[in-house]
Amino acid sequence: MKYRWDQGRLLYFQYNVLRDIASVFDSLEGISPNQDDNLFRRALENTTGMPFSPSSYKVWRNYKRVFECSMLGTTIGGNLFVSNVAKSIINSDFDVDSYLAEVIRRFRYPFPAFTETYKIDRPVYPFCAFIKFMISQRLNLDQNGFELKDFFQFVIGNNLRGTENLSEYAKLTRTNRSPIGDEKRQVREMLMFLGQMSIFKIINRKIYLDFTAEDLGLNNNFIDLASPIVTEISENREIDFTNITSTVAEDINVAVSSRENIHDNRFIEGKKRRVTHLKIERSPLLRKMYFKDNPHATCDMCSIDTKKRYPWTNNLLELHHILPLSASLSIEHHGTALVDVVPLCPNCHRAVHSYYRYWFRSRDFDDFVSKKQAIEVYQEAKTRVV
């Protein structure tokens, strides 16, 4: 079976963009995207800041697979249907981890965006298979860092379906399975999409599990993350899409105990998106990536050079994620991006989180409403440093 995904539109699968698309869908539910193409296009472009081109083709024709593979919506009887997954993104404490936990456990072949996939005998849950493979290799062989060919030769080549027990993945042998046609790019972009989750990082064309083997052994939720949400299959594309997206499962909290800190409690205040925010900031892989590219970094707020001030230390600077708390790190074609983080000394970092807490409370907000607002508030905090 050939693996399928949308290709060439990776930036549209970034969580921030998908959340904006979901809000447009919610406001326009019931319209005919094809008959109301101008309205649909303007709303999407104005809200997301992304082009939905070319104008010579209707938006739905060109971006249908983005909308459906991301499980935000489809058309039923020609009218826009908005999924419960999309409504959860905009109406609850969903963050990038919550969203991806929903999609990766539901996405299967056959899938409504790809009619040819309905020819297979039994369903395949590709993301679940990918994650089980990585977890198994990490637990049993202490291996981390997986290339695209590993997924073809171990997972796809062995016809894994994502429904097997984890023990089956420990027995895998490498096959000579190679991509068919454009399959290489499609699977690569599936992994890039998955790489937005806080517990994964993509570095130099490899995807890494961004947690320790100890974290993995102590937390069964990692396994739950790779357990498919099985839904009834219908050859009617519209019915099948609603089957796949009709309910929202119980949220999975993939805790990473090695990143917990006694000072976090006041900032978190029970909000899952703030927990994920801290998991991103405390990523040892992200830290390694950033300071390798920026070996002479100083605190972005007070300008202290901690290496010079405390020469007996290696690097006391921490990383601060400046996007909305619910957001992921940006994804680019080469891997996880570093443009969304800045280095801060521990004092300034704690002060910024304190300022965020003050700012949210004064406005009765749980999060920033946009990337622009998040950056503005960070700059506002920065200017108030004396």
Results as ranks from 00 to 15, higher is better:
307 K>M: 14
268 I>K: 04
162 G>L: 08
128 C>M: 08
55 S>G: 13
20 D>W: 00
350 R>W: 05
27 S>G: 09
291 F>N: 09
155 V>S: 04
157 G>A: 12
383 T>L: 11
337 A>M: 07
343 P>T: 07
157 G>N: 09
321 H>M: 01
94 F>W: 14
207 I>H: 07
161 R>D: 13
104 I>Q: 13
30 G>A: 05
335 G>M: 05
236 N>K: 11
148 L>K: 04
141 L>P: 00
300 D>R: 00
90 I>D: 09
89 I>D: 03
202 I>N: 02
255 A>V: 09
315 N>K: 03
352 V>D: 04
76 I>C: 10
217 G>I: 04
87 K>A: 07
349 H>Y: 02
57 Y>A: 10
154 F>A: 08
253 N>Y: 12
364 D>A: 11
362 S>N: 12
15 Y>A: 07
8 G>Y: 07
147 E>A: 13
264 D>T: 01
251 D>S: 13
377 V>A: 13
224 D>Y: 09
179 P>I: 07
122 R>G: 01
20 D>T: 00
11 L>T: 11
2 K>T: 11
9 R>M: 11
116 E>M: 05
166 L>F: 06
118 Y>F: 15
36 D>C: 06
378 Y>G: 01
281 E>A: 09
175 T>A: 12
254 V>Y: 02
199 I>G: 10
39 L>A: 07
203 I>R: 12
180 I>A: 12
168 E>R: 05
16 N>E: 14
316 L>A: 09
138 R>G: 03
208 Y>E: 07
78 G>I: 06
214 E>M: 00
308 K>Q: 14
271 K>H: 14
363 R>Q: 15
158 N>T: 06
336 T>F: 03
110 P>C: 10
113 A>M: 09
188 R>S: 15
240 D>K: 01
9 R>C: 11
280 I>W: 00
217 G>F: 01
245 T>Y: 00
360 F>A: 09
283 S>H: 01
93 D>F: 02
326 S>I: 00
147 E>T: 02
343 P>K: 04
376 E>L: 10
237 R>D: 15
164 E>T: 02
253 N>I: 03
245 T>A: 13
241 F>S: 06
383 T>R: 13
382 K>C: 10
293 D>S: 13
316 L>R: 11
114 F>K: 04
40 F>V: 05
339 V>R: 12
375 I>Q: 12
122 R>L: 12
347 N>P: 00
320 H>S: 08
353 H>R: 11
89 I>L: 15
186 Q>W: 03
155 V>Q: 04
282 R>Q: 04
177 R>A: 14
66 V>K: 00
355 Y>N: 06
140 N>W: 10
221 N>R: 08
55 S>A: 10
160 L>I: 01
20 D>H: 03
377 V>Y: 00
15 Y>K: 01
177 R>L: 08
250 E>N: 13
171 K>P: 01
133 F>N: 07
342 V>P: 02
136 S>T: 05
65 R>K: 14
302 C>L: 08
71 M>K: 01
177 R>F: 10
263 H>W: 11
108 R>V: 02
39 L>P: 02
